[in-house]
Deep mutational scan, measured.
Amino acid sequence: QTVVIGDTTYHLNNPEAAQQIAKELAKKYGLKVVISGNTIKLK
């Protein structure tokens, strides 16, 4: 699972954790979560 935040890319072996982290950050910073395949992007 790949999480992309701005110009930073994180690789996590746990998809659920990756999605949870993405949701928390999106909520905290008012970002939009875009999931395509096994890549999660925060914009």
Rank of each mutant, 00 (worst) to 15 (best):
Q1H: 15
Q1N: 12
T2P: 02
T2V: 12
V3Q: 01
V3F: 06
V3K: 02
V3C: 11
V3S: 01
V4A: 04
V4I: 13
V4G: 02
V4T: 10
V4P: 01
V4W: 05
V4L: 06
I5Q: 01
I5E: 02
I5N: 02
I5P: 01
I5T: 01
I5R: 01
I5M: 06
G6Q: 05
G6D: 03
G6I: 11
G6C: 15
G6Y: 10
D7T: 14
D7W: 15
D7G: 11
D7Q: 11
T8P: 05
T8V: 13
T8D: 05
T8G: 05
T8R: 14
T9C: 15
T9P: 04
T9N: 05
T9Y: 10
T9W: 11
T9G: 02
Y10F: 12
Y10A: 05
Y10S: 03
Y10Q: 03
Y10H: 04
H11Q: 07
H11N: 08
H11I: 10
H11L: 08
H11K: 06
H11F: 13
L12R: 02
L12E: 04
L12A: 10
N13I: 08
N13P: 14
N14G: 09
N14T: 13
N14V: 09
N14I: 10
N14P: 08
P15L: 13
P15S: 11
P15W: 15
P15E: 09
E16H: 08
E16V: 10
E16W: 10
A17M: 13
A17V: 11
A17P: 01
A17K: 11
A17F: 10
A18P: 03
A18L: 11
A18S: 03
A18F: 13
Q19T: 08
Q19C: 14
Q19R: 11
Q19L: 15
Q19E: 10
Q19S: 08
Q19F: 15
Q19I: 14
Q20W: 12
Q20K: 13
Q20C: 09
Q20F: 10
Q20N: 07
I21K: 08
I21W: 15
I21Q: 01
I21E: 01
I21P: 00
A22E: 01
A22D: 00
A22S: 02
A22P: 00
K23V: 09
K23Q: 12
K23R: 11
K23D: 10
K23E: 12
E24H: 14
E24Y: 15
E24A: 14
E24W: 15
E24G: 07
L25A: 00
L25D: 00
L25I: 06
L25E: 00
A26Q: 05
A26C: 13
K27W: 05
K27S: 08
K27R: 11
K27Y: 07
K27D: 12
K28Q: 04
K28F: 08
K28L: 11
K28P: 00
K28Y: 11
K28V: 05
K28R: 11
K28H: 05
Y29R: 06
Y29Q: 03
Y29W: 04
Y29N: 06
G30F: 05
G30S: 03
G30P: 06
G30I: 02
G30R: 06
G30C: 14
G30K: 08
L31N: 03
L31D: 04
L31E: 05
L31F: 09
K32Q: 12
K32I: 15
V33G: 00
V33K: 00
V33N: 00
V33H: 00
V33I: 14
V33A: 03
V33E: 00
V33W: 03
V34I: 11
V34D: 06
V34E: 11
V34H: 07
I35W: 05
S36L: 10
S36N: 11
S36C: 14
S36Q: 11
S36Y: 08
S36M: 11
S36D: 12
G37R: 02
G37K: 03
G37A: 03
G37F: 06
N38R: 04
N38F: 04
N38Y: 02
N38L: 06
N38G: 07
T39K: 07
T39W: 03
T39Q: 07
I40T: 01
I40W: 01
I40P: 00
I40G: 01
I40C: 00
I40E: 00
I40F: 02
K41D: 04
K41L: 14
K41Q: 13
K41C: 15
L42R: 01
L42Y: 01
L42C: 08
K43P: 02
K43H: 09
K43V: 15
K43Y: 14
K43D: 07
K43A: 12
